[in-house]
């Protein structure tokens, strides 16, 4: 989902260049407004609080009605049960491989392509850039069926012949999961915009010394691009880690399920226990929030320092 990618990047910029406005005057309207704000914040965190509170409840306690907000005690056993649920370890590994594979390939492929589009002279450049911008508009969700069929028909994979028939292609493989997300128009566009802004002087002396385009890219421009790479990395990781639809459609084998699929299976299973399901949901949600809160600061620092240099 590239649509959601931009706000996250924007937020970092806002934090980086925020200036304090004057303190609002103290009057009745402001007090009411502030109370509304508090109410909205409470309503927003409520589902999270229910998630955490339920994750500590006992098996009888979850059926008490009306439900208690504060659990009787901290039942850590639910978390152990969630982690001991069948295939949970396997699902964690699958999610990590998918998310890390997608992140690394996005970083490599998008920065290479972005560099070529921003810095290299070649025929067809405008055409390719227009193509990338055009593909930004293709809704990924509506393409899921043909992508499935294409991944199934990759030649020589999974017992396929050279025409892509006869086997299962990349279905139920990590390659199949990563391939369609390995480079995105948004990532290429973002890296291209970044490289365009770097002054030409940085690479001119290297060019005079006869360095190859790849050396210039690898030694000079890539280190400068660290803040943009951090943003792209966080967004790619987040979107693959949270992805549900693509692994659901691609993988029919239980051992290829990711954590998101595992959570859905746990919740829809015949003997679903809400406390264990909520423990699992907490375990899946926390890392993303922690990574975001940490990366936010790191990315802001990066943006500030690169702003001084540029």
């Amino acid at each position: 989902m590239t649509d959601l990618a931009q706000p996250a990047a924007m937020e970092r910029q806002i934090t980086a260049r925020r200036r304090g406005r004057e303190f609002p005057r103290f009057d009745v309207m402001n007090v009411i407004g502030y109370l509304l704000l508090l109410f909205a914040a409470l309503a927003t965190v409520m589902p999270f609080l229910w998630m955490v509170s339920t994750s500590f409840k006992g098996d009888q306690e979850i059926f008490r009605f009306p439900p208690s907000f504060v659990p009787d005690g901290l039942r850590w056993q639910n978390y152990l049960d969630a982690m001991a649920s069948p295939d949970a370890g396997r699902q964690l590994v699958n999610s990590l491989i998918y998310a890390l594979g997608s992140t690394v390939s996005n970083l490599v492929f998008c920065s290479l392509a972005g560099y070529a589009l921003a810095r290299m002279q070649f025929s067809g450049r405008n055409l390719i850039f227009a193509l990338v911008v055009g593909l930004l508009m293709v809704p990924a969700q509506s393409q899921i069926v043909p992508v499935f069929l294409i991944v199934q028909k990759i030649p020589f994979a999974g017992g396929n012949d050279w025409l892509g028939n006869g086997g299962t292609g990349l279905l139920n493989t990590y390659w199949g999961m990563i391939l369609p997300t390995a480079a995105t128009p948004f990532g290429i566009f973002m890296m291209r915009q970044f490289f365009t802004r770097i002054p030409m002087e940085y690479e001119e002396s290297a060019k005079l010394d006869g360095a190859s385009p790849f050396t210039i890219f690898r030694r000079i421009l890539l280190p400068l691009a660290r803040p943009s790479l951090a943003v792209l990395g966080v967004l790619s990781f987040q979107s693959a880690w949270n992805d549900f639809v693509w692994p659901l459609i691609l993988n029919s084998h239980r051992e290829m399920a990711t954590l998101q699929i595992g959570l859905q299976l746990l919740q829809s299973g015949p003997d679903a226990r809400w406390n264990v399901v909520m423990a699992m949901a907490t375990l899946i949600t926390l890392p993303v929030i922690i990574v975001y809160l940490l990366a936010q600061r790191h990315v802001i620092d990066g943006a500030v320092t690169s702003g001084v240099k540029g």
């Binding site: 492929f109 290479l112 392509a113 193509l131 990338v132 043909p146 294409i150 480079a183 290429i188």
Partner: peptide
């Protein structure tokens, strides 16, 4: 430089 990204975009969006 462009080839890997273009192949992926071709397979996952254009085609």
């Amino acid at each position: 430089f462009l080839a890997p990204a273009l192949v992926i975009l071709f397979l996952s969006l254009l085609l």
